[in-house]
Design a protein around this nucleic acid. Structure first.
Lengths: 133, 133
DNA sequence: ATACATGCAAAGTCTTTGCAGGATG
DNA sequence: CATCCTGCAAAGACTTTGCATGTAT
C-alpha cells in the first residue's frame, strides 16, 4: 500500500480539479507547482504512474497520444480532436440506447479505435512456470 | 503527391519486411541503416509520418504505446502483451463469426480499449469559417 | 526505528527542426 | 529548373533515475 504523503494528496487533488481536461503529467505538475512550488516534478510523475498502475487513477489511452490521466475511473470512453488535440469523455451506452456509446461530447466522430491488451503465449507460459502451476 | 525517392522505397520495404512486428520508427531506421548506412534517421521518421498521414501506411494505436507502424492497412485490430509489450494482429470478425473480432493471436485477452477520434465543436466551427461555408 | 517517499539535477529516450546541398518531375 | 527531399547535428519535449535526506507507519 502507498504511504499517505502530503504530496500524494496534492497530486490527486490537482488531478481531480482538472477533471474533464485529461491532463498529462506535466500539466498536473504545473497545477501542483502553482500553489506548492517545493513539490518536485519527479514526484508528480512517480505518483501518477503509481496510482494509474494501482487503478486509483485512470491512464487514458488515445490515438496518437499517451501519458494522460483521468480521475474518473468508471467505464467510459474518450475522444480526441484530430485538429487541436483536446480530449472529451464519451459515455457508455446502456439502458435504452442503441449502441455501445452515447456521443454527448459535441465532437463529430470520424474514427473509432479498438485495441486489445492481454498476455502473449510466451509470457503466459513463463508465468505458469514461475507460479509453479 | 510524394516524390519517388530511393529513401522512401527503402523505408517502405523495410517496414514491409517487418510486417507482424509493428515496429517503431527507431526499429525501421535500424533495419534501413543496416544495409544503407547513409540514410539518416530524420528521413526515416519523416517518411513514416508522411506515409501514415496519407494512409499508405498504418499508424498503430495501442494502450500505453504509440509511434508504431504497420504495412497492413486493411481493417484489423491489435493486441499488446502487458508483460513483454509484443504486438500481434487480431482479425476483424465477419461472415460466420459471432463477435466483432476473431482472436487468432494466441494471446489471452484481458482488456479492450475503445477510443474515438474526430473534430471538436470549436475546430469544426473554425473549419467551416475557413472554408467559407 | 525502519523502510519507503521525496527533491534535485542529470541522464535518457524518442522525435522534430533548421539549413545547405542534392535529387526529382 | 524550380521544387521538394535529404543528411547532419542540434534542439526539444517528456520522462526516468541515482542518491542523500526527510517522513510515515
Amino acid at each position: 500500500m502507498q504511504r499517505n504523503t502530503s504530496q500524494r494528496k496534492l497530486v490527486l487533488d490537482a488531478l481531480a480539479s482538472l477533471e474533464g481536461e485529461h491532463p498529462g503529467a506535466e500539466r498536473v505538475y504545473e497545477r501542483v507547482h502553482a500553489d506548492h512550488p517545493t513539490v518536485s516534478k519527479a514526484t508528480v510523475y512517480r505518483i501518477l504512474k503509481d496510482e494509474a498502475a494501482s487503478g486509483r487513477v485512470l491512464g487514458v489511452d488515445l490515438p496518437r497520444d499517451i501519458g494522460r490521466f483521468d480521475s474518473r475511473t468508471d467505464g467510459h470512453y474518450h475522444i480526441r480532436c484530430r485538429i487541436c488535440g483536446k480530449v472529451a469523455d464519451i459515455e457508455r451506452g446502456c439502458c435504452g440506447t442503441d449502441g455501445l456509446f452515447v456521443n454527448n461530447s459535441g465532437y463529430e466522430i470520424e474514427d473509432v479505435m479498438i485495441a486489445f491488451s492481454g498476455v502473449c503465449a510466451e509470457c503466459a507460459a513463463a508465468e505458469r512456470g514461475r507460479t509453479g502451476a
